[in-house]
Computed example of a mutant assay.
Amino acid sequence: MADPQELSAQFLTREESIKVDAALLTSQDKFVTRLALYALKSLKQIAQETGAPIENITPQQLSAWIEKDETFKQEIENDATFEDFFTRLVISSLNPLKQVSQAANLPIEDLTVEQVIAWFEKQAKLK
Rank of each mutant, 00 (worst) to 15 (best):
N56C: 05
E15L: 10
P96A: 00
V116E: 02
T50A: 07
L25Q: 02
S63M: 01
W65T: 00
T71A: 12
T81P: 06
D21W: 03
I76T: 10
E70K: 08
L111R: 08
Q102V: 09
L62E: 14
V32L: 15
Q74C: 07
S27I: 13
K19S: 14
Q48P: 06
Q115T: 08
E114Y: 04
K125P: 03
N56Y: 07
W65A: 01
R88C: 08
T71G: 07
Q28M: 11
D29M: 14
Q45Y: 06
T33Y: 13
S93K: 04
S92F: 11
L89Y: 09
I117Y: 02
W119K: 08
V100S: 09
S93C: 14
L37W: 06
T33K: 05
A52M: 10
K68W: 01
E16D: 10
Q102I: 10
I91N: 10
Q48N: 14
Q60W: 08
L12R: 04
E114H: 08
D29G: 11
L106M: 11
L43I: 01
A103S: 15
F72E: 07
Q61V: 01
L24K: 09
A9M: 11
A22I: 05
S27D: 15
E49Y: 04
P107E: 10
K44V: 07
F31W: 06
F72Q: 03
V20E: 05
T50E: 03
V116Y: 03
R88K: 14
V113Q: 04
Q61W: 01
T81H: 12
N78K: 04
